[in-house]
Design a protein around this nucleic acid. Structure first.
Length: 762
DNA sequence: AGCACGCCGACT
DNA sequence: GTCGGCGTGCTC
């Protein structure tokens, strides 16, 4: 066999495999092309990584079955990056590539995404000869009829004139047939005759499906930067010019104008002829960022996020691959985009947990963005109003350079934050979730014809259903979690697997009928608000009401046009939206996250409160934030009230140091799951035993094995094993060893997976 | 992951 | 006697 290739296949294999040249093909295959290969009696998708190691194989090399596309789906320059990802996350390279290249056909999915072509018309050879003498329809028709021996019918003349008008108005670009048919519904057969007469010529051109449904609102470029913005640019631009890896953390209060910093840095890179990668936590949710970048970079911009259809995503990817788009704006998976000559990498809201993918390849988009910048040799800019504790710590250790912006753009003051102790305060409506302060503030805001925003941590009506006789909580039959009452849809819903059932009023354990809901959800808050203020116009935004993007955008529009007085929502309203008329923000239960068994609980609470706080007072009115909590003295809540990030950071770091939590250690969570409870536990115990006997066991801490906080999800029992160490290399060596001995330690019926740098321990 | 191979219970 | 249960192991 002449050529042999290293191929990563779409299967959970630890190694890459060797395949031979496809039968009947002579030219070698390019690196990065997508192929179909035989694997153990089936046919799977694979990626050509390059020529195979040349030492004589001990196995029979099978030939590649077919080439799926003759162009590469990723540039060879990015292969080292993809390989590093596979090694770092202890994940099969083939699956890394499948995650990274979302439009590629998988072994399971049969349908393939294709380039979209449209039928177009250009002048035919007979017409082209006359276009020099005239461009007027009637004259051309006369000329053509005179010189040739045919007569054009009225309708054909009409179609012809229409074509000419379009052709010249769009600067001699091919004219879409569909466009002519829209203007003149009977055009079809007439155009066919014109094509037959060689007056017109039929062509097909590639079109890029447009992800910007409505062209985003044009955002003007400000003439001037603030003093702080100029100082930040003065630090950033030399780093961009130096074309070397320099990591920056930009800590700037909400409304300080970070977006303009991003835009100008990217503009600078564009002038230097480079490319730029910009990550945002969740672009699907109508972020202003998309509008800004589209206004500034137009055709140069590609967007990559989950809100795109497969076809749109394919087109955007192709535009990046062929170099016609040089700025990529996208959610975490955009970190794999095939950009070459990177000049800058930007991560907005770098602290957001949304950067962490929580299934399959559990990567962190923010961390990989830093890695890409390192490998490409360019600066990386991490921006946040509430930086992650880990990133800020890197600044203190002089690994990152800290840039700080203290002032909001128009020098608006930050809103006043009032904390209300839910346990200690007198309440005139103890039956509701509102303190008197919040009720009064809502009433006052309504009266002043301003808008209020109420933030609730959970969706649904009641978070769980409790039997008042036996104390049992109604649970999902596939997951060991409580079902949430959704009154609007009249169901009990599992937020983990989506199972739903009718909310019948009989306790499944004791048969009692005294069952009632406990815990507050957004649906219930909505009902309470309607009861308190029947005259107010109320809207709710959470993932229940947002299953379609249209409804989400419509609600935002209604809020912007002041057709809503009180907006109620979950996490998703904490980000991005800023409307000048929102002067009151209420947080119904601020400490709900502090009870979680999770070392990041305080960090998340601080970030969430700061973020929600930033929604108030974006107009002239400074705004008021009312935070209801049972823990009014908790440092994450008090320091958020004072807008004191450095204060929060030092308190948090003082707690984490003695407990050996990140940033003082690195962690890897090893997760086990399977249908057979006993075997899942046994596997976890076996692996733990193996780790305890590892030669570097004294250089790490092992917590567990223990059942996961959510023991059972979708009928699968889950156990976990947490590894902590100051030395990252130790953790990786242990994982490699476990993977090598997986056969003996873990039966096939139990799936084992690594969560490197876990964000969420549930 | 998925498919083949292999070793023990109830069927024509 | 065999058909098929799923537990185990491998895939270039």
């Amino acid at each position: 066999m002449e050529f042999a290739y290293e191929v990563a296949v779409d299967a959970p294999l630890a190694t890459t495999l060797t395949y031979g040249q496809p039968n009947g093909r002579i030219e070698p295959l390019p690196v990065g092309c997508c192929v179909r290969v035989p694997l153990g009696g089936r046919r799977v998708v694979g990626f050509v990584l390059g020529p195979a190691e040349s030492d004589s194989p001990t196995f029979t090399v099978k030939p590649i079955l077919e080439l799926l596309d003759d162009f590469p789906v990723f540039p060879p320059e990015l292969l080292p990056f993809y390989r590093w990802v596979a090694r770092y996350y202890h994940h099969p390279l083939g699956e890394v590539l499948r995650t990274a290249l979302p439009m590629v056909p998988t072994s399971r999915r049969k349908t393939r995404v294709q380039a979209k072509m449209v039928e177009t018309l250009v002048p035919g050879s007979d017409l082209a000869d006359y276009l020099h003498s005239s461009q007027k329809g009637d004259e051309l028709i006369a000329l053509l009829q005179q010189e040739r021996s045919y007569v054009l019918k009225k309708a054909e003349q009409k179609a012809f004139r229409l074509f000419l008008a379009q052709y010249f108005s769009q600067e001699r670009q091919p004219v879409m047939r569909a466009q002519l048919n829209r203007l003149y519904p009977g055009a079809g057969p007439r155009l066919d005759r014109l094509v037959a007469l060689n007056i017109l010529q039929q062509t097909r051109v590639r079109v890029f499906r447009d992800p910007f449904g409505d062209p985003p609102q044009l955002q003007p470029k400000p003439d001037q930067l603030t003093v702080e913005q100029r100082q930040v640019m003065d630090s950033l631009l030399p780093a961009v010019d130096s074309a070397s890896f320099v990591p920056f953390l930009l800590h700037g209060v909400t409304g300080c104008g970070k977006t303009e910093i991003y835009l100008r840095s990217v503009e600078h890179v564009m002038h230097l002829g480079g490319t730029a990668l910009v990550l945002v936590p969740e672009i699907a949710l109508a972020s202003q960022m998309e509008a800004h970048f589209h206004s500034r970079f137009g055709e140069q911009l590609a967007v990559l996020h989950s809100g795109l259809s497969e076809g749109e995503r394919f087109d955007q990817w192709q535009r990046v691959l062929d170099g016609s788009a040089r700025v990529v704006l996208g959610a975490r998976s955009a970190v794999f985009a095939p950009l070459l000559r990177l000049g800058i990498v930007i991560v907005d809201e770098e602290h957001e947990p949304a950067y962490k993918q929580e299934d399959g390849l559990r990567y962190n988009g923010r961390d990989l963005a830093v890695l890409r910048a390192r490998m490409a040799g360019c600066p990386v800019l991490l921006g946040s109003a509430t930086p992650s504790v880990v990133s800020y710590h890197h600044c203190q250790e002089k690994k990152y350079r800290l840039l700080t912006m203290h002032h909001r753009v128009a020098n608006q003051p930050l809103p006043r934050v009032e904390i209300v102790d839910l346990a200690g305060s007198q309440r005139s409506r103890p039956d509701l979730s509102f303190s008197d302060q919040l009720i009064n503030a809502l009433a006052d805001t309504l009266e002043r014809r301003k808008q209020s925003l109420l933030f609730v941590n959970r969706r649904g009506f009641s978070s769980s259903m409790l039997c008042r006789d036996c104390g049992a909580i109604v649970q999902c039959k596939h997951c060991q979690v409580s079902l949430t009452l959704h009154r609007g849809r009249n169901i009990l819903l599992c937020h983990y697997c989506g199972y739903s059932r009718h909310p019948d009023a009989i306790c499944p354990t004791c048969g009692s009928t005294r069952i009632s809901g406990v815990g507050i959800g957004s649906e219930r808050i909505e009902e309470e608000v309607r009861q308190l203020f029947p005259q107010a116009r109320v809207a709710r935004l959470d993932s229940d009401t947002t299953s379609n993007r249209k409804h989400y955008l419509a609600t935002l529009k209604a809020v912007r046009e002041h057709q809503v007085d009180i907006l109620i929502g979950t996490q998703m309203i904490a980000k991005g939206l800023h409307f000048p008329d929102i002067t009151l923000v209420g947080v119904v239960w601020a400490d709900s996250g502090l009870g979680m068994p999770d070392y990041k609980a305080a960090e998340r609470t601080f970030a969430l409160l700061s973020q929600v706080t930033g929604r108030a007072g974006r107009g002239w009115d400074p705004g008021l934030v009312i935070v209801q909590t049972y823990q009014p003295h908790h440092y994450s809540i008090c320091l958020a009230q004072q807008h004191d990030y450095p204060g929060f950071f030092s308190r948090e770091i003082a707690i984490r140091a003695p407990l050996h939590y990140p940033p003082f250690t690195r962690m890897i969570n090893i997760r086990f799951s399977g249908l057979d409870e006993d075997r899942v536990r046994a596997a976890a115990v076996q692996v733990a035993e193996c780790i305890r006997h590892h030669r570097w066991a004294d250089k790490m801490e092992l917590l567990g094995p223990s059942p996961s906080p959510l023991v059972k999800i979708k009928d699968k029992t889950r156990w976990q094993l947490l590894l902590k160490s100051e030395h990252q290399a130790v953790l990786h060596a242990v994982c490699d060893e476990i993977l090598a001995r997986k056969r003996q330690l873990c039966p096939a019926a139990v799936t084992m997976g690594f969560d490197v740098d876990p964000e969420n321990m549930m």
